[in-house]
Amino acid sequence: MRVNGTDEKLDVEPWVSLLDALRERLGVTGPKKGCDQGACGACTVLADGVRINACLALAVQYADKEITTIEGVTPHPLQEAFVRHDGFQCGYCTSGQICSAIGMLNEAEDPAALTDAEIRERMSGNLCRCGAYNGIVEAIKEVAR
C-alpha cells in the first residue's frame, strides 16, 4: 500500500480495517475513529484521490491504492483557511473534514460555483459536535474560489 507517498509493507489480517491499519500499525493517527461505523466521517481519507470512510474499508481491499491522509496533504491551503476561519474547536473531526473537503472539491465540476447550501450537503458526511460548521464552510469557500 502507498500511504502518503511512501510504499508501506503491511502484513495485516484481512479483518483489520484500513483505519486501524493506519492508526495502529503505521502510527498514522491523523484519521480519527469517531464511530467505527461510517456514521461520522472523522476517518475520512483519500484513496486514489477519492474520499472514503477508512473505518468501513478493509485494509486488504486497498492494497493497490494510494492512500492519502491529513498527514499526506500537508501543507494545503485548506489547513490555513480552517485556522483563519476557526473551522474547528476540539479538533477531533478536523482531519476528516479537511480530507473530505479536498475530495469534495475534486468531485465538483466547478468548485468555485458551489453555493453554501451545496457545500453543506456535500459535507454532511462529516459531523462536528462542537458545531464549527460555519467556519468550515467559510474555509472551503475561500479555497474553492
Binding site: 470512510n53 468531485e107 458526511g125
Partner: peptide, 9 residues
C-alpha cells in the same frame, strides 16, 4: 442516501 464518502465506496 448516506454520505459522499459512503457513496464513493
Amino acid at each position: 442516501g448516506a454520505s459522499a464518502q459512503l457513496r464513493n465506496m
